[in-house]
Amino acid sequence: MSATTAQRRNRIWRYGSLLPAALLLIVLTIYPVFNLVGLSLSDVEWIDGRADTSFTGLDNFEQLFQHEPVYWAGVRNTIVFAVCAVTAQMIFGFAMALAARRASGFGRVALTTIFLMPIVIPPIVIGAMWRLLLGRDFGAVNTLLGYVGLGPVDFLGNPDVALASVIMVDIWHWTPFVFLLMLTGLESLDDEVFEAARFDVKTNWQELRYVTIPLMIPTILITAGLRIVLTFKVFDEVYLLTAGGPGTATEVINFSIYRTFFAQDRVGVGSAMSLLTLVAVAVLIVAVNLVIRARRKAKEIAE
């Protein structure tokens, strides 16, 4: 009889231990998606702090697709943002990792500490910091430019350079992350392969082109995929640096959602935006995963 009690206790544990996590995910991540579907098909009024919804069909989506140029400017900017920022981060990060690869040892801890800083300090602080640095009249960057006889540049106020400035801040923010991942990747490669390659390659370029890069492809792909997807999360810095402006110069998807949903209280359209974004990015995530998995599988078969 005691046998069955032990087993019953174990069965309860097995399901019980997964329950809190599953419950949280269901209530706070899966239900909200369905909630969004409902809200996006409704007109929402706030009555005593409670949402009063009435079904309006696809009106909100019609509105979104026909009359929300700001959102679509945000979509365009976000894509430009993702492509430019991630490309630059990958190139800088990889190049620096290559350069610093054999430089390990001396000052390693100090260097890692410094490179970790942008990754772990709150993004809003980074926004605040760069807002002060890039200020038109008194920012340190313009002061520095002044020393060499350039500027001043209105980094955040000029529609032509504002997006570039925000992207630059993102590059500053995330290049160290790419660098650390690349460095870890490089250091996990088998040193003997490079020793063997010394007999076969003539130049550093050949080594890079035919040995290092092919071996690093998995790390490069994963890192690039991860960064692209995570770039769609960008919000905090933009909020502080430019709030999407001037005009729609630095509008990004998340800021459109925030403005529509919270600042303008247009819950229905905001929900439609959220839902559309969510589905699109989810598709992107699955696609990136499939690409990485397919490559891994192809490699396994090849071996």
Binding site: P32, V33, K233, F262
Partner: peptide
């Protein structure tokens, strides 16, 4: 984990 947090915040706010 990878989805933009803001796409959920609105729903949470209403809930």
């Amino acid at each position: 984990h990878m989805l933009p947090t803001l796409t959920f915040v609105g729903s949470w706010y209403v809930m």
